[in-house]
Amino acid sequence: MKRSTSTPSAPPKPPKPRPDDGAVPVRLYGLRRGTTTLLTLVCAGFAVFILAPLVWLLINATKTQAGVYAGPGFWFSKPFRLFQNLADLGKDISGAGVYLHWMQNTLVYAVAGAIGATALSALAGYGFSRFRFRGANSLFYLVMATLLVPITALALPLFLVYAKVGLVNSIWGMILPSMVSPVGIYLMRTFIDASVPQDMIAAARIDGAGELRIFFRIALPLCLPGLVTVLLLSVVAIWNNYFLPLIIFSRNDLYPLTVGLSSLSQAAETGTQAQLVPVLIAGGLVTVVPLIVLFLFLERYFRGGALRGSLTG
């Protein structure tokens, strides 16, 4: 695998950028007219498959419980209850907890964990990229090997340790392990390799700049796009994490959205309260929307991350 292929900030651009820059002109493939149409239709079909559940979520967040089950699944039915359902997110209607608290928790965990993960990854990636200390390679492989440790197999051990040291039901029990990001380190290392010239650092050293100063003043600004990518990937990973918080939290006011929604869905399906299902659906909607918006606006950073993630061993 060529590392040199991974400089997302500067892809070679043809003089006139077209939708699919750099591709061989389609007409050269000598396809029959119908083929393009057919393939486009197949793509449209798959797009419907992908979007349908989200559309359903949006529509059904406006319904009453009866409306969700009785009416047409993909069209609105009266009464229009979206705002009432959203308002219910601020109340403890199920006895399982308050959705708004879970939202706050997720925000805290995601922001703190992602910033921590990014900072640690940048430091470690810089260290691995710029210093050839003894055992550096084996250490790097050790860090990469943690990629292979399944989080589900780790959650219970973490809980057992927390039980010993009193970190059960502590937000740090969630935030600190989220800062371990081998992918982040890998991304930062390749990014720094590619975008921070060794000469520049050597020059700074000669000028008498300290190592930390070099790191903060020279390396960090140069790898800003990389930092954003790692930050975003970490936010998504923590936002979507379910198993770890499920295991380590027993108080529902500490739950993040994922665990809260799951307990809400349990209450909705097994309980008898009629208003729970629409609230569950509205809650799902509010959970999904911020990430999709974030993703649509900052898409290129995600792509960069996915591309570089693909080079990870």
Binding site: D20, A47, T258
Partner: peptide, 22 residues
Amino acid sequence: VVRFGRFFRTVFFIPFAVPGVV
């Protein structure tokens, strides 16, 4: 070889941002 390829690519990637629970 498809029309609106860019649009489809974005749409197909959206579930990545949806938590498994949801």
